[in-house]
Design a protein around this nucleic acid. Structure first.
Lengths: 204, 204
DNA sequence: ATCTTTGTTAACTAAATGGTTAAACTACAT
DNA sequence: ATGTAGTTTAACCATTTAGTTAACAAAGAT
């Protein structure tokens, strides 16, 4: 019985591969587990994607292209720094609660193989903080912000938004919160984090 | 020729295992590579540590026991929140520059197997932020700090200090800095981060 | 109807990998 | 010098794993 289901096999594989790679990583993932999870024969993985490496790259690019527009908002839209911080923080945390394994997956795999970032930089022109830095300098000169280094501010925004999800097990251990308590903390952060940042950089 | 060198074999293995596990992770590490790196026969790994799992756990506990005193400073010493933030930030960044793979290793492996944290919680009484939270509440009531949630402040301090090292490849890509430029950014952060935090929470 | 292309499977292969074993070597106590 | 306990090695083993193959099924195209 040929699987003439609504979804085509190639997409089923990608979906299954996403789940396995994002939870186990490249080294921990097994082709057999991906096949089982997709409900198909292992040979199909190679039929559609040739090798584990290529299947992994398909998953990775997919993940990154999901994340990129989120980051783009803070780098390249027209609003003020304060608005950007507020919007980004709220949107990003909402986004990650929907895709909990994403940031950890990307960071882990980039550390394993930093060359991956080169492949990504070819495909997307973003990943450039120059515009953001210029805007920070401008708002500092206009007296809107206290003296602030654009690159450090960018790092701080990323850190405050992304880190809690990456270090989730650590944070749960320290705060003694369960899954529900952790989620509450993260919901709080949608506004807490932007207040924290704005408080620090806004000229009063 | 028996290796009657100054360092005993067991320590040589642990040192080699540390290097391999911390860069490749549990799944990516190979026992043969650890043996080669230690300059000894693979059977010795099992002679001294029985299994890959146990060798890994020895490395992990070692890594964590190196990190714990750092975190302890901010949780359990007697200074004010402002002093704690300043000292911790400067000390922690210095510490991590010396042990660059450590935070990523711990975070990656805790995500792979969150139960590890249980084993650690048995051995060390630390990992408790209650004292820190009480102190924050106290300083808020004394009018030293603006209204601030202790647990969120703790997360923010961790995030700002640890994240840049965990996400190093991403940050290098965004800021277009090379290794040297990255290190300069991190050196700046020894004071930048504490200013950023103090600015945000201190009552003026 | 049958030929061809595409999709799918079970069985197989070669290499890698964690772990074992039996023999050999070292140092030291007697 | 010899026995003994601890240490080290080369060779081996069983299993896992990514990848291949050859045969088979489905569905259009002619």
């Amino acid at each position: 019985m040929a699987r003439t289901k609504d979804k085509n096999t190639e997409e089923q594989i990608l979906e299954a591969a996403k789940n396995v790679f994002q939870t186990k990583g490249m080294d921990g993932a097994r082709m057999q587990e991906i096949a089982d999870s997709a409900g198909i024969n292992k040979a199909m993985l190679h039929y559609y994607y040739r090798s584990k490496q290529l299947l992994f790259e398909a998953v990775f690019k997919n993940a990154f292209s999901l994340l990129a527009p989120q980051l783009n908002k803070i780098l390249n839209d027209a609003s003020s720094i304060e608005e950007k911080v507020r919007n980004f923080t709220s949107n990003y945390i909402t986004f990650i609660i929907k895709h909990p394994y994403l940031p950890n997956f990307i960071i882990q795999e980039l550390n394993r193989n930093p060359d991956f970032i080169l492949k990504i930089q070819e495909n997307s022109t973003l990943l450039n903080i120059e515009k953001f830095k210029t805007q920070v300098t401008l708002e500092v000169n206009q007296g809107i912000l206290k003296p602030t280094k654009g690159d450090q501010l960018f790092i701080n925004i990323m850190a405050l938004n992304i880190f809690p999800f990456v270090a989730k097990p650590l944070i749960k251990a320290f705060t003694k919160e369960d899954e529900k308590g952790f989620k509450t903390l993260m919901e709080q952060r949608k506004t807490e984090v932007s207040e924290f940042i704005i408080n620090s950089i806004k000229q009063h």
